[in-house]
Design a protein around this nucleic acid. Structure first.
Length: 426
RNA sequence: GUGACCAUAGCUCAAUAGGUAGAGCACCUGGUUGUGGCCCAGGAGGUUUCGGGUUCAAAUCCCGAUGGUCACCCCA
């Protein structure tokens, strides 16, 4: 009986980790640099938590994309489809609102949605999620966008575009939505079925339709940025002002809307060109009412979800080579039982001294041990045979040049330390 | 959930007009006695995704399931 991964689930293989390590180490370096603290909510939560945050218009709810089941005590629980709800719950439950404001939090981990897999879309995917809580200044929106921007920029991406929009607040959005609905009602019979449905269920979604017929009508459709109340307009203007000052490349996209309904004011995405239809590398925005909706004090917040798989896919597509993964630098080769005992000791000493070292198992020929060292990209082979043992030395062979020299057994650890990491090739 | 295309070795792919499967890469072993990379020789690895059907005979034709890919839906 052979098994395979579930539909939409993937193994992340050793070769993939070249990219994953590159991305994740850059990500954590950046969150540190921006002053974010890590928080890791559980993967499973009560289903009600996710439903509350999502509301009715979200596909996660609508299309039953949640992985839900009953726990042994009958509680319905779900694999998290997004980070924000769990982070908000943890924030309230643990009293993080008593931390000095603003509270900057980030998480990295898998999310689960029962979707049909497609290019750049899987049932399990990993996100870097960042939230900035307790601050309504537009500079906070900016900071979240800067974090995402810096990640892509420092990973070496080219040709990404920041898409920005403001969808208003509970004051100004309802009139806008009404205007939008009114506009499309006139053309209702001309709309494709999908958009007629969207107009009824989640009118904002009509804005990012892929239907040509609807897109033609969108040119003259009302835009949310023209309906903003004074406060929202001011907020948006301040944000775009900062972005301009930073020479930050972005486009205001009046058709940008987000999947989760809790967003207010700022929404943004970063688009890449190598991902097919799933072109969003990250998405985020402001969600001022969310903490309150899970039982906490009124707290403004901004956040972003950054898809790691999509970054890895795009890195590959753009031909960006991550640094090679660390592999053993030293391998202690041995001939004969006595030498092997010594090799075990040396390998142990090297590892204790913090250096990557391995040794061949069994008692294969020196030739096959060298072959193994070569294939594992070992930098130095430390050869320990009868002769070396008798003289109290180790023959060290540089596997890149083939040069050999002798080091006394007593000095081998300090010799290795002096040669690790090895001098880089000019 | 809907649709299109696809499914042969770990990977990339062959297999004339239906006649029970091959190559390259990768992997393992050797090319004598203590020296890798190149080269050479050999080896292992497949119930041709699975289950039915047609046929003397199916990787090949038909049906179904499963999975993959891409798009819709939706989203990272």
């Amino acid at each position: 009986m052979r098994f395979q991964t579930l539909k939409g689930f993937n193994d992340i293989l050793p070769d993939d980790f070249r990219y994953w390590r590159f991305v994740l180490s850059k990500a954590t370096e950046l969150t540190d640099r921006f002053g974010f603290m890590q928080i890791d909510p559980p993967i499973l939560e009560e289903t009600r938590l996710f439903l509350r945050g999502l509301q009715e218009g979200s596909a996660v709810v609508l299309d039953k994309e949640l992985y839900s089941f009953d726990d042994h005590d009958g509680t319905n629980i779900s694999l998290r489809p997004e980070f924000t709800a769990g982070v908000m719950r943890a924030y309230v439950e643990n009293g993080l609102h008593t931390y000095p404001k603003p509270v900057r939090l980030f998480s990295i981990g898998p999310l689960f949605r029962h979707e049909k897999p497609q290019a750049g879309r899987f049932r399990q995917h990993v996100q870097l999620n960042a939230e900035l809580l307790g601050e309504e200044d537009a500079a906070a929106d900016l900071e979240i966008m800067q974090l995402a921007y810096s990640l892509y920029h420092e990973l070496g991406f080219q040709g990404l575009t920041f898409q920005l929009n403001s969808i208003g607040c509970s004051q100004c959005r309802p009139p806008y939505i009404q205007a939008l609905v009114d506009y499309f009602q006139v053309h209702y019979s001309a709309l494709p079925a999908v958009d007629q449905r969207r107009l009824r269920v989640n009118p904002l979604r009509v804005l990012d339709t892929k239907e040509k017929a609807t897109r033609a009508l969108l040119a003259d459709a009302p835009r949310s940025i023209d309906y903003l109340c004074a406060d929202c307009a001011q907020h948006f203007q301040t944000l775009t002002g900062y972005l301009g000052d930073l020479d930050f490349a972005y486009e205001v996209n009046p058709r940008l809307v987000r999947g989760f309904d809790y967003y207010v004011r700022t929404v943004f995405e970063v688009w890449g060109s190598e991902l097919g239809a799933q072109n969003a590398l990250c998405g985020g925005g402001r969600y001022d009412g969310l903490v309150e909706s899970v039982g906490g004090p009124p707290t403004p917040g901004v956040g972003v979800g950054i898809g790691i798989e999509r970054i890895v896919l795009s890195l590959r597509a753009q031909g960006i080579e991550p640094p090679a993964l660390a592999h053993p630098q030293f391998m202690t080769l041995h001939r004969g039982a006595a030498a092997k005992k010594k090799a075990v000791q040396i390998t142990h000493q090297l590892r204790q001294a913090g250096m990557p070292a391995t040794m061949p198992f069994g008692s294969r020929s020196l030739k096959s041990q060298l072959k193994a060292a070569n294939r594992s990209h070992v930098h130095y082979a430390l050869i320990l045979g009868e002769d070396e043992l008798a003289q109290g030395i180790v023959t060290v062979r540089d596997m890149t040049t083939g040069e050999q020299s002798e080091v006394t057994l007593a000095d081998i650890v300090s010799w290795a330390q002096a040669h690790w990491p090895p001098p880089t090739d000019a």
